[in-house]
């Protein structure tokens, strides 16, 4: 099980990268390699060129920006787990990362890589959707922004051209205090989820829900925001009944099914996990 032959390039800047992408054919970008390398070793991916973006200096960062947190595409999952800004503004991402692979994969795997790989059950796109993220894409024609909600074109297909690269992601983090919860169900620790659910909840002075966000992975090719449930919750009480009712919305989701996992089972998990994530979020919102 050895990778096929390819030509290797390791640009040092985004300009060099986009230049290469603009001229080469049949290229694969190599980020953390935790998804691409297995595909190469198994020869599921047969690129003529591999462009390694690990040596581009300014793609690995977490920055506080207007309206949120901006994360460089090459920021490792391990870095995010330990980053103080992430812990402060997007702790749900830390909780979600805990479910991603293993210590030996998070050390290399990147936030950008996950958002480009787009496994339907992946946690990171789910969190990006929770925060209505904006993705920053660079190409020979310059940089453009894409909303996470327009990012997934189909099964494992991001809205990106072959001559473009994802360079950064801005999470629209919430300003005031709020609670969060991320729950998932996988067969074993570190496996891709079957279904995962993330929730954010803010309470007003009276203890009523002033804002809610729910994002579910593993039911569709892209993370699904449970907007109907969010609306139901907003302005209402943060009690078990309201949470259960909101979670029931997930039971109406259209869910994909495959050889091993049925749509019914995904719906059931989505409901259960949404409830558990909301529960956690409310508890934390109360402090």
């Amino acid at each position: 099980m050895k990778a096929p032959p390819f030509a290797y390039h390791d640009p040092r800047s985004v300009e060099e990268l986009t230049g290469l992408l603009g001229t080469l054919e049949n290229v694969r970008i190599l980020a953390g390699g935790q998804s691409l390398m297995p595909m190469l070793n198994m020869r599921y991916s047969m690129p003529d060129h591999v462009v390694d973006i690990n040596r581009i200096a300014d793609l690995d960062y977490v920055r506080r920006v207007e309206g949120g947190l901006r994360i460089g595409a090459m920021t490792r999952q391990r870095t995010l787990e330990r980053d103080p800004l992430v812990a402060q503004y997007a702790p749900v991402l830390v909780e979600a990362l805990h479910w991603v692979g293993h210590v030996q994969t998070r050390s290399r795997g990147t936030f950008g890589g996950s958002l480009c790989h787009l496994d339907p059950a992946s946690e990171q796109p789910c969190v990006a959707a929770l925060f209505d993220a904006t993705l920053h894409v660079a190409g020979a024609r310059g940089e453009r922004d894409v909303s996470i909600h327009d990012w997934v074109l189909g099964y494992m297909t991001p809205a990106i051209e072959p001559d473009e690269a994802l360079v950064g992601i801005t999470l629209r983090t919430w300003d005031g205090p709020h609670g969060y919860g991320f729950e998932e169900f996988a067969r074993r620790h570190g496996d891709y989820a079957i279904v995962a659910a993330g929730a954010l909840v803010a309470l007003d002075g009276a203890g009523k829900i002033s804002r809610a966000a729910i994002s579910i992975a593993g039911v569709d090719v892209k993370p699904i925001r449970l907007t109907e449930a969010e609306t139901m919750l907003t302005g209402g009480p943060a009690d078990a009944g309201a949470i259960a009712a909101a979670a029931e919305v997930a039971r109406g989701l259209e869910c994909m099914s495959d050889a091993q996992i049925s749509g019914d089972y995904r719906r059931r998990l989505a409901t259960t996990l949404t409830r558990r994530a909301l529960d956690k979020a409310v508890k934390r919102a109360r402090g």
């Binding site: 099980m1 050895k2 290797y8 390791d10 190599l30 390699g33 935790q34 390398m37 297995p38 070793n41 198994m42 591999v50 390694d52 690990n54 391990r78 293993h102 210590v103 030996q104 994969t105 050390s107 290399r108």
Partner: peptide
């Protein structure tokens, strides 16, 4: 396994754990 799951290839690179089957030697 050479596909990143079994962990028998784990080495410590610049102080962090990595799967050596999921890194190019060049890297």
């Amino acid at each position: 396994c050479e596909h990143g799951v079994c962990g028998s290839c784990t080495v410590i690179a610049d102080g962090v754990l990595v799967r050596s089957c999921l890194m190019l030697a060049i890297q």
